[in-house]
């Protein structure tokens, strides 16, 4: 019984995954990212976290993993050409984070555009 239920659940969640549209990642402005895509996909959070402690606590400036630079390069324009904020589904961070249902805490304090 339990096994059947489990199989059903797994099947349903896989089905759900297949149904949800794959995220379409918006183009960035810059030529290339500060790290290769693979590293950014898996480790952007560690990079940002390391950077945040370095900048705020140690006072190191001008290093390459700054949230501000990410947002500038990855700004998604709206119809008027203005960058959209985190409340917008199209925001660069939202595209994947919405898909994966992972809450972002950054923009509780940081401005998102």
């Amino acid at each position: 019984m339990v096994r059947i239920l489990l199989a059903l659940l797994i099947g349903m969640s896989l089905g759900g995954l297949a149904l949800a549209a794959e995220p379409v990642i918006p183009k960035a402005k810059g030529e290339r990212c500060v790290e290769d895509s693979r590293t950014m996909r898996t480790s952007h959070m560690e990079l940002l976290k390391h950077q945040r402690d370095l900048t705020l606590r140690a006072g190191v400036r001008g290093t390459k993993h700054a949230l501000k630079d990410c947002l500038t390069c990855h700004a998604v324009p709206d119809a008027q050409g203005q960058p959209v904020g985190i409340e917008d589904q199209r925001h660069f961070c939202n595209v994947c984070h919405g898909y994966a249902a992972v809450r972002i805490d950054c923009f509780e304090c940081h401005v998102s555009k």
Partner: peptide, 9 residues
């Protein structure tokens, strides 16, 4: 002078 990039306070 501004602290050079990469240098801590």
């Amino acid at each position: 002078q501004a602290r050079p990039a990469g240098r801590p306070a």
